[in-house]
Design a protein around this nucleic acid. Structure first.
Ligand SMILES: [Mn+2]
Ligand SMILES: [Mn+2]
Ligand SMILES: [Zn+2]
Ligand SMILES: [Zn+2]
Lengths: 133, 133
DNA sequence: TATATATTTGTAATGATTACATTTTTATGG
DNA sequence: CCATAAAAATGTAATCATTACAAATATATA
């Protein structure tokens, strides 16, 4: 029995071939890929894979707390890492780096009752792009 | 001489009537409005105002560091407040609340050279929406 | 006033995401 | 093994915020 298969089952997701492939891709490519990137990469081995299926599957994973969506100004990114952490987005090359700090808890606030998620994103230029004058 | 006029001049922006109106709206409505909201509100007094002009003007203000853009999953929001602070987005009513904490500085990181901006956004349900069972 | 420049406008294009109907695959029971 | 129902995957069309761009209008300058 494969690890990914049982993992999906444990999260009440039927482990179809496609779903396992998408999960494995996210697990092995922890660079916050876009839907486009996932679709393109898997099209080689799954020639009939549709973008709609990638969207559907990601939303399924999100509902079952296997994946988190990161909203940037352009495309959405998907992150399989569940531990709370921050990100750095290079606005030149669009790379999204993991930053290993835990975002601060929301302070008590009159208008806030229930906090379900935090996103801490830094923007700027990465080393590679800075050097490439 | 009006305050907004000199303020725009000081930021190297020619204070046209439209630009002053948009600036004033942001200054007086600090609820992180969308382009849609700005356009709709000002259309009453500026019937010929086009959405393109709202977009153009906001981007101009952003380039001159008068306004910050906040990227959420749906529409973009615009914030005239320059002091570093966080936000809470109610995913029920889409209200974006100001949270008065300063986002932590980015830690030193091998890949990062130049950090220009931070966005710290909490997601959840606000008090009003929680009560409205 | 004439001319150049800046601003605004209207319309069309873009492109990621969603909606939805159809097709294909999988599970189940006789 | 077949029949049938449910689940999964697909293809295409619609949506809609944002951008591109060219034309029109307003403003400054000489
Ligand atoms: Mn990450
Ligand atoms: Mn704010
Ligand atoms: Zn970079
Ligand atoms: Zn709310």
């Amino acid at each position: 029995m494969e690890r990914v298969q049982t993992l999906l089952r444990n999260h009440d997701i039927r482990p179809s071939y496609t779903r396992m492939a998408i999960y494995r891709y996210l697990d092995e490519n922890r660079n916050h890929p876009t839907v486009e990137a996932i679709h393109e990469a898997l099209s080689a081995s799954l020639p009939t894979l549709s973008k709609t299926t990638v969207y559907n599957t990601l939303h399924l994973f999100i509902r079952h707390h296997l994946v988190k969506e990161i909203d940037l100004q352009d495309h959405k990114r998907y992150d399989i890492v569940q531990e709370p952490h921050a990100h750095f987005k290079c606005d030149v090359c669009d790379t999204l780096y993991d930053i290993d700090i835990v975002p601060p808890n929301a302070p008590t606030h009159d208008d806030i009752v229930d906090v379900r998620d935090v996103q801490l994103v830094y923007h700027g230029t990465c080393k590679r792009c800075q050097q490439a004058v």
